[in-house]
Write a protein that binds this DNA or RNA. Sequence first.
RNA 1: GUGGGUAUAGCGUAGUUGGUUAACGCGUCAGAUUGUGGCUCUGAAGACCAUCGGUUCGAAUCCGAUUACCCACCCCA
Length: 439
Amino acid sequence: MALLTQAPKGTQDFLPDVTPKLQYLESTLLQTANLFGFVEQRTPTFEHTELFVRSVGDTTDVVQKEMYTFEDKKGRSITLKPEGTAGALRSALEHGLLNGALPVKVAYLTPCFRYEKQQAGRYREFHQFGVEMLGAGSPAADAEVISLVCQCLDALGVGDISLEINSIGCPKCRPRFHEALRQYFSQYKDKLCPTCLERLEKNPLRILDCKDPSCHEIAKNAPVVLDYLCDECGDHFTGLKKRLDAMGITYTVNPTIVRGLDYYTKTVFEFISNKIGAQGTVCGGGRYDGLVEVMGGQPTPGIGFAMGIERLLMVMEANGAPFPPQVTCDLYIATMGEEASVKASQLAADLRSEGFYAETDTVGRSLKAQMKYADKIGAKYTLVLGENELRENRAQIKNMKTGALIDASLDQVVDKLYEAVLESSYIEIAESQTLEFKE
RNA sequence: GUGGGUAUAGCGUAGUUGGUUAACGCGUCAGAUUGUGGCUCUGAAGACCAUCGGUUCGAAUCCGAUUACCCACCCCA
């Protein structure tokens, strides 16, 4: 029974009261991306499992325990995408986008799936907005991508999000750092938590952001990545900081940012909010210069980010960010009798083909009930159609806000409404402007 | 995967130590004299009190299990 009436764990329904917000959010994000030359790319919801194992990395939690993997009817191993980058790159490689003008700049909006225990801001099906820039290895590219995130957050009126950046080096300098970390943490083997003991062997970087108090304390004095960067990575990082400064983007350097996906190199960054609970990372990203090659392409640098749509919405709501006003009915046509109802259908059709939002009774309510309904849905104007109106071919358009009536021939309803709506929208604009001036 | 909390109509809640018709607000629907909404008033519909099992003469109230949700760890968006 519950199987029929309950959505699967960790999933959620987006009802008509929030979908307009999502549409606004999504179109704003894509439009902002366009300003930077990123164009939307759509790729499948599922891919071959191998793709994620190779790109995300088989030591990561995502691959080891969070993927929705199954066999299709021919026994192929298929996985619902747990993140967006792998599919985006696969698609770019498959279609030879890298043979065209570089850099390749794509944006995507996609559902992602991770089998995790849910909590605030964490779902099993969630949505990511992301961007990938391929073929650009300079710090200018990093700055561009980070600046894009800032502009998105700005455009959406999300305040109060902090940017943290770090560099985790490249395959040339990272081994030195790993070695230094191993040496350092090995002194404290008896004080590290069990998972960190494992990490010591596999990925000592991760000990740095362990929340265990004991590990955290030890990590405080651990070697810092930034001291171990090779010249190239060091220059890259200062190049990025220079550009962020020039663009007036404030950030803090946080050497403990590590990221849980194996493909990152050099720059990594996170945009964090403290208003939505423990899962405060609204956007995370970084550079992945080795990834294209790992996937079988020519060595090509790349950088990108992913933003959690649900988390973004949560932050916006928490900060009281503005959303566009709800679209309301332009004209509600109340009817009395069969003939009027037929005429109303015709009128409504005419109005809609002119781009108006029109409604009329479809459930057989009394006139009074129809008026109440019109009020409830926030109709701007109403019009009553009964025997009198049909006989005289005239009706009165009522302004629901002021109560004023406009006399109109039934043949002129579209024109009259056009005038009226135009006029009232001018008034609204004027009002909102005077309000702004007052402030 | 680990730990804590919660579970009563569409939504938000009440229901004191088990006692019989499970209450309230919002919302929905219908009315308040003849063809016009908002305010007010009246009325109605809507809940096997998450599920299953147990204790008891009697369970929304106590016990157990299950499921779901919330929160934190882990990890990440």
